[in-house]
């Protein structure tokens, strides 16, 4: 006969004290996030086809490669727009998406990274719980933004070679004179795999932390809210005031 208790003995209750639902991820950031997911998926698929056209000799669609390239270029522009939006959010977004969180200028951020790595390496049983990103996550996102920028620049160089755009030519037209265009193509292609590897890492670590933390981390990227203990919020508030003054 099943127990009438609602608690599973293998998963005891996890008291976390008084909490609040805090709106952490504003909608532009969530739009950026899911826009990136979509555009990286589309760009990777179409880009891989452009690299190695695996559908050969069909007669049904007489503009197949043309369509792949059109979709790739269109989503490339969406990708660029999302990146510019993210740059704006560094300066216009809330505390947890501002650039200070991402650039490790303070020793405390480096110490936090070590603690995060200790959790990943099974040395510490508890993760570093933060309202926004932990220092390690934030730093890795800064790295992935650099990859995004490299992908955009190499992509624009290749685009400009075909389009001879009056806007792009002065911006990126000089780059093939420094780095050969074939190497730019190689970089553009190889960085795609960095995104895919990052995606695998990212989903795994988010699931892991969400499971241990039990603060609705996975939910937060959909709804914006995270479950935050009241005392942590107060501490963060004090820190924010101290930084402001």
């Amino acid at each position: 006969m099943p127990s009438s208790s609602l608690t599973d003995p293998r998963h005891p209750l996890q008291p976390i004290g008084p909490t609040v639902g805090l709106y952490v991820w504003q909608y532009p950031l969530r739009l950026f996030h899911w826009g990136m997911v979509l555009s990286i998926a589309v760009l990777s698929f179409t880009g891989y086809y452009i690299h190695d056209p695996f559908i050969v000799g069909q007669v049904k669609y007489p503009f197949l490669m043309g369509w792949f390239r059109f979709v790739h270029e269109t989503f490339g522009m969406i990708f660029l727009a999302l990146f510019l939006m993210r740059i704006a959010l560094f300066f216009q977004g809330n505390r947890w998406v501002g650039w200070r969180q991402y650039v490790p200028l303070h020793v405390s951020q480096w110490k936090e990274m070590v603690n995060v790595m200790k959790f990943y390496g099974f040395i510490n049983p508890k993760p570093v719980s933060k309202i926004g990103h932990n220092a390690m996550a934030a730093f890795s996102y800064l790295g992935i933004y650099a990859v995004v920028l490299a992908e955009i620049v190499t992509g624009l160089v290749l685009y400009n070679r075909l389009r001879h755009s009056a806007v792009l030519a002065p911006l990126v037209g000089w780059i093939p004179g420094v780095v050969n265009v074939q190497n730019l193509r190689l970089i553009h292609f190889l960085l795609m795999f960095v995104f895919i590897a990052f995606g695998v890492f990212h989903v795994h670590l988010c699931m892991l932390i969400s499971r241990v933390e039990k603060r609705g981390l996975m939910d937060s990227i959909f709804i914006g809210y995270k479950v935050i203990p009241q005392d942590e919020l107060e501490e963060e508030q004090k820190k924010a005031i101290a930084e402001r003054s």
Binding site: Y120, F189, L190, F193, V200, F201, H204
Partner: peptide, 21 residues
């Protein structure tokens, strides 16, 4: 080829996170 290197990178990542999980 560059594609093989990329696939290997992704494969290693998948194996790594699976082991970690």
């Amino acid at each position: 080829t560059a594609g093989e290197i990329g696939m290997a990178l992704v494969g290693a990542t998948v194996a790594g996170v699976t082991a970690h999980g």
